[in-house]
Write a protein that binds this DNA or RNA. Structure first.
Length: 797
DNA sequence: ATAGGGTTAG
């Protein structure tokens, strides 16, 4: 706002030329095909040469106007021309046809050859600079203008304002505008557009008001920019005001204005208004169809988007272009129509739309959403040109498909590229850090964010809070939470959840009351976090209290997640009948997660029959639920029902289900990357020492088994024992390595991708006792803080 | 003879 109001607006009364110009532009049809008049007789050229040149000029112009730049260039090179007009023609041609760098190069060549540039030359080249975001080149041209005395030309200045806006230098655009000796309507529109270009809809609209205060009447271009400003800010009220102005000025039949109105309404969430406008547009171009399709996608109406794609071909005989496909693809994901997505990809290939950065990026999104990270990766790998959005999309595709390490590696690769991660990139990668990073790596990304411009972005800080909790430092999570400038409801939900996963239930409840004291209204997620906390901390009474309160006091209907937490708690008490009844009486259809809760409870209370019942339900819903197979098979193993164990095993084999490889991560002293141990891991360079430490500790604890004993077992015993023996489980190896590679007094931090087993849990407790070290193990559900022989989870997890 | 600002895209 301040930037606009600071403008000095001198000479604004001088608007006669502006009115003329805007009137002229209202009938906006350029006589592009008019025959060029031969240039006035100049130098000693004979008439034959003159005639020849003029026909060549005409040929160039025809090629330029029909987009055949190669042909135009061919003629140009043959005629060896020193006429400014022809050079201008070429530069304009390149710019109009999207060949911005060629345009800039041509201008350079012109300079080198000493050919006089004029105001037209500068206009075209500045336009090319703006479109290609070549800020430095644009600034050089700007400097040159002073030398040649064109720095006050109103057209040139207008295009400079626009160029600075497009390159993101809004301050320069504003300053230039302020300093212009003469301003017309286009100058104002350029500034309005510049604000839109940097995503500042507020100032764009403020500028629109200012221009009217200075006696300028907005024209159709002003309206189009203003509507875009409204969509950026989701200002539907302003949008409607502009709509009224459109009607008052009689622009309602202007196709571009109509399209902009349609787009504004759908971006502001009123796709119904957009649809009504759409129906009234008589001349539906591909842009109109695309905008409508985009509106349906944005407002999650994939069916209608599908219908659009069909109808644009049937009704108007238009064939979808690259933008149509870009708009259409998300609706395939929304609709779960993988085949349609894939065939759109095929269509794009057949139509020759590829390579195309935006389209390819959309395809990465598509395949990411459909659980095909390999396909996304393929597209990413073969792309010639990648934008920051491309990288963010690929990172996000990995994260969505639980390929967190790939996401981290790709992010690190991005950091050494000239592209700077933006808020979206960071928001995409942070969940990957939460899942698989160690504290050291977490601190690195935190440091990076602190130094970036995103250091006070609430959304990102919320992710950081969660990340610290998941990396094992709830205190740091809290410290960051405390320093968030603008805490939203997610900030509170996150810190409550942070304490929940560490089993600090009291803390969660404390934060919940602080949240209420600050007048933040809890939402659905808040109660998921709270109930999770009650469940991990075993606070049964509190859980019921919150459960009742959410309906009564906040009018929030409990969802499946809430029922899951309550069920966990019932299961924990061991009242399995009650748990079973609870599921039956639930008003919602039980999900795999619900049956999983019953399965865990049955396992912990050794009720094989009920476990089988739960597992049956899980398999009916998710035949590929690996955890369910493993849990069931472990249950049988504990009961020494080896035949059943074998049955489950062959079932898994038959259905092509592979056991998730369990791993434990621990920071490494020798490398910046953490070390990932798997069960029976022997790959670490310090393997011998690690196993020696483990052996000594186990002997002290009294688990009198040799850790190298596995080798001595008979093959048959090995077969039965190996998978179920906890002796060399990854978590133990990680703890031992942690003990010898971290400073005494510091806790040993280990992260696991699966639940910790009972044996390892009790071993960890004892290790914490005899080594007098705090050991923190974050498994796939909760964190275990082992200290002095006890665990924070209270031996239930 | 050529102008400047403006519609759909991740």
């Amino acid at each position: 706002m301040a930037a606009t109001l600071s403008h000095q607006y001198h000479h604004c009364h001088n608007s006669i030329s502006a009115i003329k110009l805007s009137e002229k532009r209202l009938t906006d049809s350029k006589p592009r095909t008019s025959i060029p008049i031969p240039s006035c007789r100049r130098k000693p050229k004979n008439s034959i040469e003159n005639r020849r040149d003029s026909s060549l000029r005409r040929a160039i112009r025809n090629h330029v106007d029909s987009g055949q730049m190669r042909e135009a260039l061919e003629i140009f090179e043959k005629m060896d021309c020193s006429e400014t007009y022809v050079w201008n023609l070429m530069i304009r041609g390149f710019t109009d046809n999207g060949l911005f760098f060629e345009a800039i190069n041509f201008y350079r060549r012109m300079e080198n050859q000493g050919i006089q540039a004029d105001n037209f030359t500068y206009l075209f080249v500045i336009k090319a600079c703006g479109a290609s975001l070549s800020f430095f080149e644009g600034q050089k041209v700007h400097g040159k203008l002073f030398k040649v005395g064109l720095n006050s030309d109103v057209c040139v200045c207008n295009s400079l304002v626009s160029m600075y806006g497009k390159s993101g230098f809004i301050k320069l655009a504003g300053e230039l505008f302020d300093e212009m000796p003469v301003r017309d309507l286009v100058s104002w529109n350029s500034l309005v557009g510049a604000y839109v270009a940097v995503g500042d809809g507020r100032n764009s609209l403020a500028c629109l008001l200012d221009m009217q205060a200075f006696g300028m009447t907005p024209d159709r271009v002003s309206m189009i920019s203003a509507l875009k400003a409204c969509s950026i800010e989701c200002f539907i009220r302003s949008g409607k005001e502009v709509h009224c102005q459109v009607l008052k000025c009689g622009f309602e039949l202007d196709l571009m204005v109509q399209t902009s109105l349609l787009d504004m309404y759908s971006k502001c969430g009123r796709v119904d208004y957009a649809e009504r406008l759409f129906r009234e547009i008589s001349q539906k171009t591909i842009v109109v169809w695309n905008a409508m399709m985009g509106g349906f996608v944005l407002n999650s109406q994939p069916q209608k988007s599908f219908a659009c794609l069909k109808k644009m071909q049937e009704d108007d005989n238009l064939s979808p272009d690259a933008i149509s496909i870009i708009n259409f693809l998300p609706s395939c994901a929304q609709f779960g129509a993988f085949l349609d997505g894939k065939s759109s990809h095929g269509y794009a290939i057949r139509k020759g739309f590829l390579p195309h950065v935006v389209l390819e990026t959309s395809l990465i999104d598509l395949y990411g959403a459909f659980g095909k990270p390999k396909l996304a990766e393929y597209i990413f790998g073969q792309m010639e040109e990648k934008s920051l959005v491309t990288w963010s999309s690929m990172i996000s595709a990995y994260v969505q498909n639980e390929q967190n390490e790939e996401a981290l590696n790709l992010f690190l690769e991005l950091l050494i590229k000239p592209l700077q991660p933006d808020a979206i990139t960071l928001a995409s990668v942070l969940p990957a850090y939460s899942e698989v990073a160690t504290l050291k790596e977490g601190k690195q990304i935190h440091g990076y964010i602190s130094k970036s411009e995103h250091r006070s972005n609430t959304y990102i800080l919320n992710s950081l809070v969660y990340m610290y909790a998941k990396c094992g430092e709830p205190e740091t999570a809290r410290a960051i939470f405390d320093r968030i400038l603008f805490r939203d409801v997610s900030s509170w939900n996150t810190i409550i959840m942070a304490y929940a996963i560490h089993g600090f239930g009291r803390k969660s409840i404390e934060l919940f009351s602080m949240m209420r004291d600050e007048g933040i209204r809890p939402n659905y997620i808040t109660f998921v976090s709270l109930l999770t906390s009650c469940s991990t901390s075993g606070m049964v009474d509190e859980a019921w209290r919150f459960y009742n309160s959410m309906k009564r006091d906040y009018n929030i209907v409990p969802g499946i997640e809430h029922y899951g937490c309550i069920l966990d708690l019932i299961g924990r008490t061991g009242n399995l009948d009650r748990a079973k009844n609870f599921i039956e009486e639930m008003p919602l259809t039980p999900t795999g997660r619900i049956w999983g809760s019953l399965l865990t409870a049955s396992r912990n209370h050794r009720n094989i029959e009920l476990a089988e019942h739960a597992a049956e339900h899980i398999f009916a819903l998710e035949h590929d639920n690996t955890g369910c197979y493993v849990l069931l098979s472990n249950l049988y193993a504990e009961a020494e029902r080896w035949a059943d164990v074998e049955r489950i095993k062959s079932l898994m084999k038959q259905r092509g289900i592979k056991k998730t490889v369990g791993w434990s991560l621990v920071e490494s002293t020798t490398s910046s990357k953490p070390y990932k141990f798997i069960n029976q891991d022997k790959s670490h360079v310090q393997t011998n020492i690690i196993y020696d430490v483990l052996s000594i500790l186990l002997r002290k604890i009294g688990e009198e088994k040799s850790v190298h004993g596995m080798i001595k077992l008979k093959p048959q015993d090995l077969k039965n024992n190996r998978a179920y023996s906890a002796e060399n489980h990854s978590v133990r190896l990680a703890i031992c390595f942690g003990l010898i590679s971290t400073k005494v007094g510091k806790p040993v931090l280990v992260r696991k991708n699966t639940r910790i087993c009972k044996d390892c849990h009790s071993v960890a407790k004892k290790i914490s006792e005899i080594t007098k070290r705090e050991i923190v193990v974050g498994d796939s559900k909760v964190f275990h803080h082992f200290r002095d022989g006890n665990c924070s989870c209270g031996d239930y997890w």
